[in-house]
């Protein structure tokens, strides 16, 4: 039953995501690998669309994946499943919210969880980068370094540098990189 599975998967993602929407990406990659519902390369398309359309990116990505997997109803179901843990948890803890804020155990757990979230995203980043700039079909003949696409690597570094340097809105970089892709026929 695809809908039941969608509900379960996105409920778990909602429950174990800490922080902003990009923190859900490691789960979406894991989901792709376990279920085969979509390709891992689909993730960068999804990020692009979700960053360039209104609405919080984590929610957009849930709708996008659900849509891809099981049509319009799948999109709605994935989204609602992902936000259900938030609705429940906020309702449960709201009465004690401000005691929670200074709860030591909570703070201590987050001391460990934050670098873990960063590590998970680093893994996904490196993996997506290898998909983006390596000619995977060439690795067996010319080796890992020989298969690096120099042009794409330079474009990646240039965009990364300008994000750090100019701090413009993500949509700006999505549009610019799309235009670069068209001009250079990537």
């Amino acid at each position: 039953m695809i809908y039941l599975k969608l509900f379960y998967e996105f409920f778990i993602i909602g429950l174990f995501t800490f922080g902003g929407g990009l923190a859900t990406i490691p789960y979406l990659k894991d989901l792709a690998e376990r279920t085969g519902w979509y390709e891992v390369s689909f993730i960068t398309d999804m990020i692009a669309i979700s960053e360039s359309t209104p609405g919080p990116i984590g929610i957009n990505m849930a709708t996008y994946v659900g849509n891809e997997v099981a049509g319009i109803f799948g999109g709605i179901l994935a989204t609602v499943s992902e936000i259900l843990p938030s609705i429940i948890i906020v309702a449960l803890v709201s009465k004690f919210l401000f005691k929670f804020k200074n709860n030591q155990g909570f703070k201590h757990a987050f001391y460990g969880i934050r670098p873990c979230v960063a590590g998970l995203l680093a893994y996904v980043g490196v993996d997506l980068l290898s998909v983006a700039i390596l000619n995977r079909s060439l690795i067996s003949t010319v080796g890992l370094f020989g298969s690096i696409d120099i042009l794409k690597s330079i474009i990646f570094l240039a965009i990364f540098y300008s994000i750090i340097k100019f701090k413009k809105h993500p949509v700006t970089y999505i549009i610019i990189s799309g235009i670069i892709g068209i001009i250079l026929k990537l």
């Binding site: 398309d45 960063a118 995203l121 680093a122 996904v124 980043g125 990646f156 990189s177």
Partner: peptide, 18 residues
């Protein structure tokens, strides 16, 4: 072609998030 470029941009955005 546009999406091939966007893949690089989206990956760069992940690195800035990291």
């Amino acid at each position: 072609h546009a999406f091939a470029g966007i893949t690089l941009g989206a990956t760069a955005l992940i690195f800035s998030a990291i």
